[in-house]
Amino acid sequence: MSLDYIRAGTTEDAIAALIRGGDDAKVVAGGTALVLMLQEGFIAPRYLVDIGRIAALGGIRDVGDAVIIGATTTLWQVMTSPLVGRRLPVLVGALGRVATVRIRSVATLGGNLAHGDPRLDPAAVLLALDASVRLAGPDGERWLGLEELFVDELTTAIGPAELVVEIRIPYPDPSSRLTYRKLVGQTMDDYGVVNVAARLDVDDGRCRDARLVLGAVAATPIRVPAAEAVLRGAGIGPAVIAQAAELAREAADPVGDLRGSAGYKCDMVVVEVRRALTELASGPGGPATPAGRWSDS
């Protein structure tokens, strides 16, 4: 079956092509996930709509209280942006854990979210940062929080003729401490066994607000509201941390695979959440250094 390739010049062009192509059309930007699925025969689209040359979908801009990143900005462009480095070092660290330089240089931030793979590093940390995406489609534009975006494994709330246009990431409060941890079992470029993104907003030693996000251990990256509730208002010490880690274990629903059995992954959720919260409790957080590589702190 032939595959038709459409180079969209504008967002409107792309949406029109997606409407024409219907279920047989797929969007391609960096292609690192899509080409893999094509090569392995997981998908067989009739039309590929290339959005990589749409100028309006690129770029990184400061809007005062947030950074807005165009959907087709590559992970490398995001992580080497001085603005992102200054305001969101935790995101730089997480992007540095994505596969290899070869993937980071080509894969796009919008594509990463649209792919809907629960194991991908950016999704978990962007959830902890309360990021949202702007979608454009036949019925106009809408904003969607990441929690609404991720529906199931490889399934998002993005409509059939909709595109991710940009990602909005609010700057964390000065009181926010953030970390991202990724436990890998075999090689550094592998998917995580367990990914943890955590944020504690701390005033006078007490936690005012918290985000605890798990990646790779459920059908989507998930927040753990029960653990966040325990952390909120508490002084962060070993007892509260242990309680939050147990609640995270209960929220996890991993599938056993070559990276470990479901039981092992649940155990590692406890360990990694404990490490993440301990790090945030003791230090200023906002790690400029990519944390979480085989460290047993």
Binding site: Y5, R7, V28, G31, T32, V35, L36, Q39, E40, L48, D50, G52, R53, W76, A99, T100, V101, R102, I103, S105, V106, D189
Partner: peptide, 27 residues
Amino acid sequence: IGVCGLCTVLLDGMPASSCLLLAPMLE
């Protein structure tokens, strides 16, 4: 599948796996 690195090329000066790049993307 983009893992081994044998097919590494430089795309605008950055390493990329040429097995994961569709030829039309070179435009």
